[in-house]
Amino acid sequence: MKTAAGYAAGLLFGLGLAISGMTDPARVVGFLDVAGAWDPTLMFVLGGAVLTTFIGYRLVFKRPAPLLGGVFQLPTKRELDAKLLGGAALFGIGWGLSGYCPGPAIASISALSLPLLAMLVTMVLGWFAAKRL
Rank of each mutant, 00 (worst) to 15 (best):
M1W: 10
M1F: 13
M1S: 14
A5D: 05
G6Q: 11
G6A: 14
Y7H: 08
Y7N: 04
A9S: 11
A9D: 05
L11A: 15
L12Q: 03
L12P: 00
G14T: 09
G16Y: 09
L17G: 01
L17A: 11
A18M: 11
I19A: 15
S20A: 15
S20N: 08
S20H: 03
S20D: 06
G21I: 03
T23A: 12
D24G: 04
A26T: 05
R27F: 05
V28N: 01
V28Y: 09
V29K: 15
V29R: 14
F31Q: 07
F31S: 06
D33T: 04
D33F: 06
V34Q: 05
A35S: 14
G36N: 12
W38A: 10
D39L: 12
P40F: 12
P40Y: 11
T41Q: 14
T41L: 15
T41M: 15
L42G: 07
L42E: 11
V45W: 13
L46D: 04
G48Y: 10
A49T: 05
A49E: 06
L51R: 03
L51P: 00
T52C: 15
T53G: 06
T53E: 11
G56R: 05
Y57P: 00
Y57T: 03
V60I: 12
V60P: 00
V60M: 12
K62R: 14
R63S: 10
R63Q: 13
R63F: 06
R63C: 09
G69K: 03
G70N: 11
V71G: 00
V71K: 04
F72M: 07
F72E: 02
F72H: 07
Q73I: 09
P75N: 14
K77Q: 11
E79W: 09
L80S: 08
L80V: 03
L80D: 01
D81R: 03
A82L: 14
K83F: 04
K83N: 10
L84A: 14
L84I: 10
G86H: 06
G86E: 05
A89H: 00
A89F: 08
F91Y: 10
G92S: 13
I93T: 02
I93G: 01
G94Y: 01
G94I: 01
W95Y: 05
W95Q: 01
W95H: 00
W95C: 00
G96P: 01
L97Q: 02
S98E: 03
S98T: 06
P102K: 11
G103K: 04
G103T: 02
G103W: 00
G103A: 14
P104M: 12
P104A: 14
A105G: 02
I106Q: 07
S108Q: 04
I109A: 13
L112D: 04
L114G: 01
P115E: 13
L116R: 04
L116C: 05
L116M: 06
L117W: 07
L117N: 02
L117I: 02
M119W: 14
M119Q: 08
V121C: 12
V121T: 14
T122K: 03
M123V: 01
V124Q: 04
L125D: 09
G126Q: 06
W127L: 15
F128V: 10
A129P: 00
A129H: 05
A129D: 05
A130G: 07
K131R: 15
R132K: 15
R132M: 14
L133R: 11
